[in-house]
Design a protein around this nucleic acid. Sequence first.
RNA 1: CGGGGCGUAGCGCAGCCUGGUAGCGCAUCUGUUUUGGGAACAGAGGGUCGCAGGUUCGAAUCCUGCCGCCCCGACCA
Length: 445
Amino acid sequence: MRLTRYFLPVLKETPAEAQIVSHRYMLRAGLIKQAAVGIYSWLPLGLKVLRNIERIVDEEQQKAGHIPLLMPTLQSADLWRESGRYEAYGEEMLRIKDRHGRDLLYGPTNEEMITDIFRSYVSSYRDLPKTLYHIQWKFRDEMRPRFGVMRGREFLMKDGYNFDVDRESALEAYDRHMVSYLRTYERMGLKAIPMRADSGPIGGENTHEFLVLAETGESEVFYDSAILDLQLADRVVNYEDPNQLKEIVAEWTAPYARTDETHDPALFNEVPEERRRSSRGIEVGQIFYFGTKYSEAMGATVTNAEGQRVPVEMGSHGIGVSRLVGAIIEASHDEKGIIWPEGVTPFHVGIVNLRQGDAETDAACAGIYAGLQALGLDPLYDDRNERAGAKFATMDLIGLPWRITVGPKGLKNGVVELVSRRTGESEELPPEQAVEKIARIYAYI
RNA sequence: CGGGGCGUAGCGCAGCCUGGUAGCGCAUCUGUUUUGGGAACAGAGGGUCGCAGGUUCGAAUCCUGCCGCCCCGACCA
């Protein structure tokens, strides 16, 4: 994309309403525009990041064998009356009446609707296990939305639901989700720590939250620093193998890691003192095993091998897709702007033309731009008639992980500059080699 | 929902206390010179001062009501 043809409204000054760094940068870099309290438009650059995150979540779900579908944002109140949550959910649920006076609601989550779909079609244990998920906008009328997309009222969430014939199988699903979530966050360049948590209003006995460590996090967390060293990296995971999944879960749940809700000071004190950490974290996902809570209330039963009708075992799992955009910025930025991990960056590389209008420089930029596109890469070419400083400032702010700087001085020696946004390290090399190097970097992302 | 604060040009702000021609910086447009870390000069455009009432000869300014937004708290992906 050529910047002169793109829509990238960057701001030099910080809008007054933004307090935390991710919110400030999201506004300044032209990612979002607030439409109302806790409700945002996603501008082109922000949408690209959101879609990248969504794509990673989607791909990792399917690798784990989970099945995508799409449920509506508006739901009938009747389903929620069945589960008893229409009254229980409270003011957070946005209730709407249609022209006939029927009660609708903008879905804050989908346990009821997925259970209804399930019970309509599945009646035998032979059809189990199944995990269905969707990535859809939710609405929760929070008392106090804040921090931009980190606590919006409207937000994009992946929510999934597993259906199993018995407890053992449901717990396998729990493990499978934990592992697939670890993989998902790793691909985004995030360190998200699974922590034993409280199940809250969704209910259930087993639950972990995934937290990204950040000063601005809303949760207080306590953990053994050993957990920071754990990585899936290039480990081959076989989602069909419950034993392997169990081992990985055991590995990640062995070090102490809890939120303040479940924190146990006595247990925490058993961690060697030099590894005992407390900090703040942003919750970017949660997995639950809640057994038959919804299936019993809503009559979702299957016939088991013994011919008895039993309520199906369930769990649910969520990833805050839109929140992750903010969480990634909180975890990865500096005083100049955002630093996107390669996995989610809106453009793979920025090209800065230092002497717009100079025939040789323009031609070199055009060649690099075309070369990158030919290799399937998505570059952003700053072809504005601005001075170098302004172009650098824009690139630093929007945070593309790599920048190719092209100017007459370098071209005289046949080289351009390739700069890492994260480290600031730069190397001079011929244009073709810069293109190849970018291609190599992204070949493994 | 309780407590605190703010609404003046696209953005950031001053002016309000003490009523009298609506200002500054950035951004935008035109021109010239510039061009390796947010250029300089000259000129130009842009605001029913959140909305509605009221007081007054006169309201951005004083009064009342409403709306919007921000921060702290309890609640939450």
